[in-house]
Simulated scan of single mutants.
Amino acid sequence: MEDARRHYLDLIRTDGVPLSPALAQAFATVPREVFVPDGFLARDGRRVLPADPEFLPTVYSNDVLVTKLSEGRPVSSSSQPSLMAIMIGALDPRPGMRILEIGAGTGYNAALLAALGATVTTVDVQPDVAARARSALARAGVSGVRVETADGYTAAFAGDPERYDRIIVTVGVAGVSPHWLDRLEPGGRIIVPVEHGGTHPVLDVREQGAATVVCPAGFMSASGPLTARRRHSHPEPVLGMEGLTGSRPSCWRPPLEALAYRDLWYAAGAWHHRVTQAARPDRQQSCLAVLDESGESGAVVLADGAILASGAERDRYAAIGAALADRWDALERPPMSAWDVELAPSGPLWTPYRWTLRHRRAEDSPQPAEDSPQPAEDSPQPAEDGPRAA
């Protein structure tokens, strides 16, 4: 087991994630297997049980462990450890801090936070998920974690301490609940995966609704008000786009690596509200897509800069996809961490409405051609009073 956990830390670091000594110690000592006592679903759909030979090697791999399905869709899991490490690092928990976690999952993430000296309240809307997390935390001997069954939007329950130094969200949402902002201590932060272009990049949000981008991610979506859509929401991901044919050949050698492709994807989503993700039957991973108004056609931008398109407006959407890719390339391929994001009230949530590249004025950026995406400054505008003050 000691060797397995040492290898576990190496796998997390191999994914490019720096681990502080305290966080490395937490990952090395909190027993992840205790939090999946009923096993989990392998990527091929099989249930892996504790007695199976692949159980422990998979538990101590850098992989997500899906623990519950509803109508064939994952609704609870233990997240990928390297992503957990990035989010916890961004959260910057300190001993004695009070942390609210939205989405209890297996309880493993809360246990890691407790190992870092925080007092954690974790809530989950699913009573069975909350009960299993509570049991697992007890079996692991973890103190300092309270598990509540509650709606994540309000996170209201009896005996709520009301104010928190940090809030971490482990489920994909469309924006930030105003209830979270109201309960954040001065100087606090919310680490939250917010829908953008069909994925859930993680944001670091402060009290005034100002945010920076932490990393790319894809999460199971929440339910209720936390997934409320608005006029300029990106389209939902699509399973496929029929009739795609080449519109522009490959122009980047070598093709973008996975993280750089996500950087392009993020910029595209900031510049155009029809950006989402589309699965392609000939590729394992989903692609950056710009959907036309039918929601079934449009253009796909590949990692080598090639453009595929389909539908009645294929030429127009191919031009939009090319303009997105070329604009990002001309700006020297900024990483998603270079974006500042402003949030403002929109319906039941605070949602992103303006994106600005740090150290570059948008009016100094290369301008897109006609019919191409609008610059970030043309994004949906906030309510009249704008983002509220601290």
Rank of each mutant, 00 (worst) to 15 (best):
L56H: 10
R132S: 00
Y353C: 11
W339S: 06
A133H: 00
I320M: 09
P127C: 01
L11Q: 06
D304E: 10
Q126W: 00
V176P: 02
D371E: 12
P382N: 11
L203Y: 07
G218S: 11
Q208D: 13
R327W: 12
D329V: 02
P18K: 15
G240R: 15
R163V: 13
R354V: 13
A344T: 01
A383C: 01
L69F: 06
R94I: 00
L291E: 08
G246F: 00
D340V: 00
R316A: 06
T122C: 03
V36K: 05
H179Y: 10
A155G: 04
V17A: 04
E370N: 02
L56W: 10
A114H: 14
A270Q: 03
V169L: 08
R146E: 08
S250L: 09
D204Q: 04
I99A: 08
P237N: 03
G39I: 00
A318T: 01
N109M: 14
S346P: 01
P31L: 08
S379F: 11
S177H: 03
D340T: 01
M241G: 05
S135K: 15
A267Y: 15
L259A: 13
A26D: 05
T122G: 07
A90R: 06
P334K: 00
I190E: 04
L259T: 11
G295L: 12
L264P: 05
E162Y: 12
A156H: 11
S346H: 06
A222K: 07
Q284D: 12
S223R: 12
Q285R: 14
V169Q: 03
P53Y: 11
F35V: 02
P31Y: 12
Q277W: 02
P366R: 14
A51H: 13
A306T: 07
G16P: 10
L239N: 08
P380W: 15
D378V: 01
S20L: 12
A258M: 04
T351E: 10
V145F: 00
G172Y: 04
G103V: 01
Q277I: 14
A210R: 01
G107V: 07
A299M: 02
D385K: 11
A228R: 03
V147G: 00
V147D: 04
S372Y: 02
A4Y: 13
A228H: 05
V142D: 07
A110T: 14
A389F: 15
C215K: 03
R354A: 00
G175Y: 14
T29Q: 13
L11H: 08
A42K: 03
V30S: 10
P237Y: 10
E162C: 02
R146G: 01
P216R: 09
D364W: 01
G117I: 10
E370H: 06
F40L: 11
P127W: 12
V120P: 06
A309P: 05
D385A: 15
L302C: 11
C251Y: 10
C251T: 11
S250P: 07
T121Q: 04
A104C: 09
R231E: 09
G105Y: 06
L116E: 11
A383N: 04
R206C: 09
L100R: 07
P387D: 13
Y353M: 02
L308M: 14
R354P: 00
D329Q: 09
R5Y: 01
S82T: 02
L302I: 02
Q381T: 15
P387Y: 03
Q208C: 05
I167S: 09
R360S: 15
